[in-house]
Structure formats: C-alpha cells, structure tokens
C-alpha cells in the first residue's frame, strides 16, 4: 500500500467515507497515492479515485492539494483557492476541474481540495526547450488569460477576495515593501525599485480576476499543447496588465531570454491571443510597469523565502538559495528599467 504523510492507514478510510458522501457515491476507494513534486507552499498528492455510483461513477486521476503545515499569509487558503478555481473553470479557463473541497482539518489534519489531474510537463526548463518558438502555445496562453479576465468583482462566491484600497499598483508596492522588511532599508536597488513603483504607479483602472502567478512553470504542456493552468493560490482583483507583465518577466524565461513571452515565443504572440478573447487591447506601457512590479514582487518573495530558512523556522537549502537569488532579480529589474528609458 503506497502511503504519504497525509494519507495513511488511519486517515484513508475517513477520507474514502467522506468522499463517498460528498460525491453521492456508494463507495470511493483511494488508490495509487504518490507525492507530486513542485509546490514550495502547498503539498500535492496524485491519486486515483475509484468511485462506485453517483455523479462521478468511474475511475478518476485526481490531485489532492493540501494546505501547508503553516499557512502563508500571502496566499489564499484552500477553500478560497477552490472558489477561485471554480470561477476560472466556469469562465472557460483551462484550470483543472475542481471536484470537492474540505475545510475540516479533522479529516486529514489540514484543509485540502481535490481536482482533476491533467497530464503534461510543467518544469520551466523543459517547457522552453524547443528549437522553434512555440507561437501557438503563447497565443493560447494569451487567450486563456483573456478569458480569465472576464471574471469581475461582482462574481458570486468570490466576495472574500479583497479589493485594492489605493489601486492595485500602489497596494502591490506597499505589500512588497512590507514583505521586504528591513532589507529595503539596506539594499539600495530594492529601495530604488520600490520608490520607482510608487512614483510611476498608473492610476487605478478596471479590476479583473488575476491569476498572479501566471508564468512558465505553472502550466502543463503535452505534445506542445496547453493542458492546464495551475497554482491559483495568489489570485486576486487587479489590473489585467499585471498578469501579462508577470508572464513576460525575465525571471520565468528559463534561459531563453530572447523569447520574451515566458521563454516560449515573442510578446506579440501572447498579446495577439489575449486580444482575441479579452475584449480589450494590451497596454504596453502598463505591462512594462507591471513587469517592473513583477521583479520587486519576486525579490520580496525571495527575501521571505530566505527568511523562512534564516529564521530557523524551516531550515531548507532550497529556501536558503532562493534568498541568495536577490542579486539576479535585481539585475533583471535594472535591465528592465534601463530598457524603458532607451
């Protein structure tokens, strides 16, 4: 019997009984449990549900996504993430189909939800490894984003998502300053970047549901085609150009700096796909602002991840090395700011 920490002899029967009840099934068996790699924050298990009766009768490859042992304040909790996933899926976005969520920590020790498992490769360095640019993939990723951005703050079920107070740009800058903490008082590049964001913030415009981690490495590709968009835990109301700026940041090109849309193709391909479905034009000036914001956000996250190690709460070589990536992120920020003035 294959086991993971979360699903063991004690929790498995409980989980199976709960799933059967939720799915209106006669019985559910949980098989083939294995841990999925990736997910610095959440824990993902691949499993098969053998469902007898009810609306999901049959065998289903699913992912059980559980909350981390310690919740990270910046991300949504699992029930909220599930609600976002439902809204995105309902909007026709290629998000994994949400199946069922459980807020009761008594069941597995942590909150979790279950979604359909998509096939494909996520690892950025593998996705970008093609001789020719993947223009259709970039276009499709643009189309998907355009569909997602139709989800607006009036959508039922998403009332818990906070609305920006001073506008998405200034709120974001303030948040990154908070995350960076005292590092912003001794790292001039960081201080300069944060100041730049504050001085150059565009006025607030329309608010849409942004994925906020839409990038190569967070979608699945099979035979060159998109199969699913993953990692919805940072979603929130923001400027639609934020997702495009994040997608195009150098940080997510995995060595293919020349292919500015996520290391897979040109920006033009991504933008064209976006304009096909979004019902709005891409605003390159705003995208450029949000790309600068992306470097500051990633820098602030890297600082936080490094702190999780340095503070002793979570000793980890991976977190430690992420903390030391700060100069690379700041290098990319300076390069970007230089390009805006060229």
């Amino acid at each position: 019997m294959s086991m993971s920490g979360l699903i063991n002899e004690e929790t498995r029967p409980r989980l199976e009984a709960w799933l059967a009840e939720q799915l209106g099934a006669t019985s559910v068996a949980v098989d083939d449990v294995s841990r999925l790699s990736g997910g610095a924050i959440s824990e993902n298990l691949a499993l098969t549900l053998a469902v007898q009766g009810g609306r999901l009768d049959g065998r289903h490859a699913v992912v059980l996504r559980a909350a981390p042992p310690m919740e990270v304040s910046a991300s949504l909790n699992k029930a909220q993430e599930f609600a976002v996933l439902r809204a995105a899926f309902a909007a026709g976005v290629a998000a994994p189909e949400p199946i069922v969520a459980c807020e009761d920590k008594g069941l597995l020790g942590r909150a979790f939800y279950v979604m359909r498992r998509a096939e494909g490769v996520a690892a950025g360095f593998r996705v970008v490894k093609t001789d020719e640019p993947q223009r259709e993939l970039a276009r499709e990723l643009g189309r998907q984003l355009g569909k997602l951005h139709y989800v607006r703050p009036s959508t039922p079920g998403l009332e818990f998502l906070p609305r920006p107070e001073r506008g998405p740009a200034l709120d974001a800058a303030r948040l990154y300053r908070e995350w960076a903490g005292e590092v912003a008082e001794r790292d001039p590049v960081l201080a300069y970047g944060l100041r730049w964001l504050e001085v150059n913030a565009p006025p607030p415009g329309e608010l849409v549901l942004c994925h906020r981690d839409y990038r190569t490495g967070n979608y699945l590709v099979k035979d060159g085609g998109l199969t699913a968009i993953l990692d919805w835990e940072f979603a929130g109301w923001s400027d639609p150009m934020e997702d495009l700026g994040w997608f195009c940041a150098r940080s997510w090109r995995f060595g293919r700096s020349d292919r500015e849309a996520g290391g897979i193709a040109d920006r033009a391909d991504l933008y064209a796909g976006y304009e096909e479905t979004a019902g709005r034009r891409v605003d390159p000036v705003r995208v450029a602002y949000w790309e600068a914001s992306a470097y500051l956000r990633w820098a602030a996250i890297a600082i936080q991840q490094g702190c999780r190690h340095t503070s002793g709460t979570e000793p980890s070589l991976e977190l430690a090395l992420t903390g030391r990536m700060l100069p690379e992120i700041e290098h990319d920020l300076l390069l970007h700011l230089d390009s805006l003035e060229a």
Partner: peptide, 10 residues
C-alpha cells in the same frame, strides 16, 4: 552594487 553581489552569488 548589483555586479559586485553577482560576482559572489552567480
């Protein structure tokens, strides 16, 4: 500043 730090980190 950034170049000096990159000489160490990467």
């Amino acid at each position: 500043i950034t170049r000096a730090r990159l000489v160490v980190s990467n």
